[in-house]
């Protein structure tokens, strides 16, 4: 479904993505993990056309997405946004997104899921951070698209809403969709993901199923496996430093 071909991205002299070649195919849930600055968000943003790659190509269903925008009709993207236009109400924002992206929507499902009925006529500027994230999720996921990309979906969510969201995500997987999640909460990734892609300093360090990752690292859970990877790479690095 998504394929990155020898993708490179420089921010000035900083080489953030170093020749990544990667295919992500659905259906299923793929967790994109990695420490801060490993290139997760840059990778997703280059797929969505917000960041322009320095070299390489990105394909979606076999077609290059560079300099295109109509492919985004098929993508639901949840961004890490904390500021919306302050003077628009929740209802207005929902109808705005529906106008921009026509098609069948299911906002009522989310309004019910997150108990947003009372908030619909309130202005975005007056909402709390958690409620804003709920609106953000509603806006992002109300369309029925074959590809869902979630950038830190759990930010600011209360446990009950997070549980509901998890349920929604697994239901979407059952319906044959591809879902890509980036998160810092490893338990969320562990509970949901079928496959793990682990980025480290702009490279793909691991790409495979969750069980393969645990086997590789000889650990029983994701947190330990990730800690193991980070420790061992640090050792290698230290050793290299000493050599120099």
């Amino acid at each position: 479904m998504i394929s990155f071909q020898n993708l490179n991205k420089y921010y000035k002299k900083n080489h953030v993505i170093k020749g990544i070649t990667l295919s992500i195919n659905g259906p299923g849930i793929v967790a994109l993990l990695g420490p801060n600055g490993s290139g997760k968000t840059t990778l997703l943003k280059s797929f969505l056309g917000m960041v322009l790659p320095s070299s390489g190509d990105i394909l979606f269903n076999g077609e290059s997405v560079l300099k295109q925008y109509s492919y985004r009709k098929q993508i639901s993207y949840l961004s890490q946004i904390s500021r919306f236009p302050d003077n628009l109400t929740v209802n207005e924002l929902i109808s705005f997104m529906k106008e921009i992206k026509p098609g069948k929507t299911r906002e009522h499902q989310f309004i019910q899921m997150f108990n947003l009925q009372q908030e619909l006529e309130k202005k975005m500027g007056s909402l709390s951070g958690g409620t804003r994230q709920k609106v953000n999720i509603t806006l992002a996921l109300m369309h029925d698209d074959p590809l869902i990309i979630l950038d830190e979906p759990s930010t600011g969510l209360d446990p009950l809403s997070l549980k509901e969201l998890k349920k929604f995500i697994t239901e979407e997987r059952e319906r044959g969709k591809l879902i890509v999640i980036t998160t810092h909460i490893l338990s969320l990734a562990e509970a949901l993901a079928d496959d793990i892609i682990f980025l480290l300093e702009g490279h793909v360090f691991f790409n495979g199923s969750m069980s393969a990752l645990l086997n590789d690292q000889g650990e029983i859970n994701l947190e330990n496996a990730i800690a193991h990877i980070l420790k061992s790479t640090k050792k290698v690095k230290d050793a290299e430093d000493i050599k120099i």
């Binding site: 925008y69 985004r72 946004i81 904390s82 500021r83 236009p85 997104m97 992206k101």
Partner: peptide, 16 residues
């Protein structure tokens, strides 16, 4: 500057 994040949201839609 206030709309910066919202612009990013719009960029993920099928808009030029």
């Amino acid at each position: 500057y206030n709309s910066k994040e919202f612009i990013q949201l719009l960029m993920a839609q099928a808009l030029s």
